[in-house]
Write a protein that binds this DNA or RNA. Structure first.
Lengths: 227, 227
DNA sequence: ACTATTTTTTAGACTTATCTAAATTACGGG
DNA sequence: CCCGTAATTTAGATAAGTCTAAAAAATAGT
């Protein structure tokens, strides 16, 4: 049980990571995120989640009643989005300015996102040119905490002969991004669906006037596009 | 008592801060840093230091025998210098690229210095143009951990009518830096000693062709110069 | 409506880093 | 050389975050 310092307005790294995880899971499950779901996302045990969830509730960051899952309060949402904003801004810096590849910035941004300084975020944002999207096509929340979600269509939604541009990835794991990289399936690439195999829903597509390549349904479902 | 994970090669934030403090104090006291000195620098209690010092000794980062003060091992020195290098590189970034004032970057750099990524340091260093000094004139250790200390003369060492250029500050606290700022006593400023008051060793100096100003001995002792 | 299973919570323990208070050890002055 | 003070270390406690194992609550199947 925690007898934590509710007075403190600062959240620890761990608290911030929990808030981020809950925020992400809330999009899938807006009525309440389950303990197990959080444990899965945080790679920890359900009992640890229960403890942390009590602490966050004490700090008025989430709404929590036993056995009923959690939702973010407005205060919690703000805190979570602020971390996401910092994460994505740093990713832009790492790729655009330091020349990192898009598949190797996540871990570093996981650390940088916890640096505490309002001023730093403001100046970094301006320095980067107030970017709207991170290197994976995810929208960067503005300074008021608003996010413009617009990624509803996936490559897997396309039909034969349709054309679109890749604007984002759902899964940002290195392995997936490296796989995309090999096929030149990067953000901004235009794709045309040549064929959809009925059996496994795999697709044969042409990428930016290249030769046709075959991609699995799993890959197609993790690519956001704009038609 | 600690039964810590000696296998881990990573050091915690706290460990890194202790190493940094010991490294700094070692310059004043090369034969061994006392427990109390570390406690003072870390703003903690001697008993806490004893505990941590045992832990660092287990990890082979320092040499420690009861009641005899500590010295860094080569491994510990490398770790400490690596943190200092990161701290100073980030300070350059904050001032040169993000436009922070030199008196407001220390706290942010204190956080950024703990971000773990070899690649990040290499790329940041290159991005900044492999700078040799941070915004306070402190030398930035190179990637092999070598530091070129050259700040032996202070403004207080000058005699009447002698001329020099300000190249660094010993104390980097905001209050001191802001005080310097007000007098335009910044890095690169040239100074000429007009008068030294015998009574309190305060100095009347001209800064870069400006009007003469009076500075206390304390200020003069905290300014490094090149003649 | 009543088990069986799954989910969630509790209880108790461990680790890191800290503290206070008490016990040791070191050291300087007569 | 001894004694008092200062420095250091030990012992025991606290707090955050985690775990395992067991208990309690919710859900599902028939």
């Amino acid at each position: 049980m925690y007898f934590c310092n509710v007075k403190t307005d600062r959240n620890s790294f761990t608290e911030e990571n929990y808030l981020k995880a809950i925020h992400k899971l809330s999009r899938i499950n807006p009525k309440g995120v389950s303990t197990n779901a959080i444990a899965g996302a945080m790679e920890t045990k359900a009992s640890s989640v229960t403890d942390m969830v009590k602490k966050l509730a004490l700090k008025m960051l989430i709404n929590y009643k036993k056995y009923q899952g959690v939702t973010l309060t407005e205060k919690g949402r703000k805190a979570a989005v602020s971390v996401v904003r910092k994460h994505r801004l740093w990713e832009v810096f790492l790729v655009d300015n330091l020349g990192f590849k898009w598949d190797s910035v996540h871990e570093i941004a996981e650390q940088l996102e916890h640096v505490q300084s309002e001023e730093l975020v403001i100046r970094l944002d301006r320095y980067l040119g107030i970017p709207q999207y991170d290197p994976h096509g995810d929208p960067i929340p503005d300074s008021d905490g608003n996010i413009t979600h617009h990624k509803d269509t996936c490559l897997s939604d396309l039909k034969v002969n349709q054309v679109a541009v890749v604007v984002g990835v759902k899964d940002s794991s290195s392995s997936f991004l490296q796989h995309l990289e090999k096929m030149k399936l990067v953000l901004g690439a235009s794709v045309k669906v040549d064929e959809i195999v009925d059996f496994d829903k795999s697709m044969s597509i042409c990428i930016s006037d290249g030769l046709p390549v075959s991609i699995s349904e799993a890959v197609a479902k993790n690519l956001y596009i704009k038609r």
